[in-house]
């Protein structure tokens, strides 16, 4: 199918431009679409959109609606109220959804991740809690790719370490108290763990390598089908070799973020 990708925006999402650019660089048709364009009566005919206009969705980073409640809570509530059915169908029809940073928070609030079942869960099963440092932090982070093949966004990464920047205040993956082991086992068993924070030697490590205190050093996970990925770090910010000019890291060819978008496009083309 033709890769036609919507980058969803509402007030406060703020990474949509570079995300659209990243998708275009990987060969997709991509546009930033305001959530209102799917449902509001005041929108002009030429700007109205339907989910079925697209074959992929990205929820970009930012501070949707200010994140004054829980990060992503308001954006996901609005999406749920107008698009719940459509989204479930979209996922079940194998179309890919990517959530970056605030987008990951939205997918979790929406119940699309961890996505053990084929519908959105009623309540969020994960929380992206405030960082252990208790403040917003922006830094480059080393991530080890650990997915064994389920996640369609990271095909070909094998066991490589990549460097993506993180920039968030609420990125610590937390599972229901007392159930942590069960959740981790299930995610590992289902091959839903995608990225884990490591240090410069590729080993699991604490702060600042794990920038927020995430359990099991989790940086990104996919759903059980492998077509929904949420991650805190920002691949769209490191699309080029020269994205690393000022730091000690040399990517192979493109920037490390490129492969995520390229895989998304390739995957849709084969659908």
């Amino acid at each position: 199918m033709e890769p036609r990708i919507a980058v969803l925006r509402i007030e406060g999402t703020n990474c949509e431009d570079e995300t659209v650019k990243a998708l275009k660089a990987a060969g997709a048709f991509a546009e930033a679409v305001h959530l209102k364009q799917f449902y509001s009566d005041m929108i002009k005919e030429s700007e109205k959109r339907k989910i079925t206009d697209y074959t992929g969705i990205v929820i970009p980073g930012g501070f949707s609606a200010g994140d004054y409640v829980r990060a992503g809570a308001i954006f996901s509530a609005r999406m749920k109220s107008v698009l719940k059915r459509d989204l479930e169908e979209f996922i079940n029809n194998d179309f890919p959804i990517l959530g970056i940073c605030n987008g990951f928070q939205v997918l979790v609030e929406l119940g699309a991740l961890p996505g053990f079942e084929d519908k959105l869960s009623e309540k969020p099963e994960i929380v992206l809690a405030i960082n252990n440092s208790n403040r917003f932090e922006c830094r480059m982070s080393y991530l080890r790719h650990e997915n064994r093949g389920k996640c369609m966004f990271t095909k070909g990464l094998d066991n490589r370490v990549v460097v993506y920047p993180v920039a968030h205040a609420e990125g610590k993956v937390v599972f229901p108290k007392g159930m942590e082991g069960i959740y981790i086992d299930r995610l590992v068993e289902n091959d839903q763990i995608v990225f884990r924070y490591v240090d410069e030697n590729g080993d699991y490590a604490g702060y600042p390598w794990n920038p927020n205190g995430s359990i099991y050093n989790i940086a990104g996970i996919c759903n059980a089908k492998g077509n929904v990925l949420g991650l805190m770090p920002h691949p769209e910010r490191v699309m080029h070799e020269w994205s690393y000019l000022d730091c000690e890291w040399s990517p192979e060819g493109h920037g490390d973020g490129w492969i995520i978008f390229k895989n998304m496009v390739d995957y849709i083309e084969k659908l």
């Binding site: 703020n14 990474c15 431009d17 570079e18 650019k21 990243a22 980073g61 403040r135 917003f136 932090e137 922006c138 830094r139 480059m140 982070s141 080393y142 460097v163 920047p165 920039a167 410069e200 600042p208 390598w209 920002h234 769209e236 910010r237 490191v238 699309m239 020269w242 994205s243 000019l245 000022d246 730091c247 000690e248 890291w249």
Partner: peptide
């Protein structure tokens, strides 16, 4: 505490060198 990389156009950041 400041996001110095949003917009993906920051080439030299205020902090440079080994990551972290």
């Amino acid at each position: 505490q400041y996001d110095h990389q949003v917009r993906a156009s920051t080439i030299l950041r205020p902090l440079q060198g080994r990551i972290n």
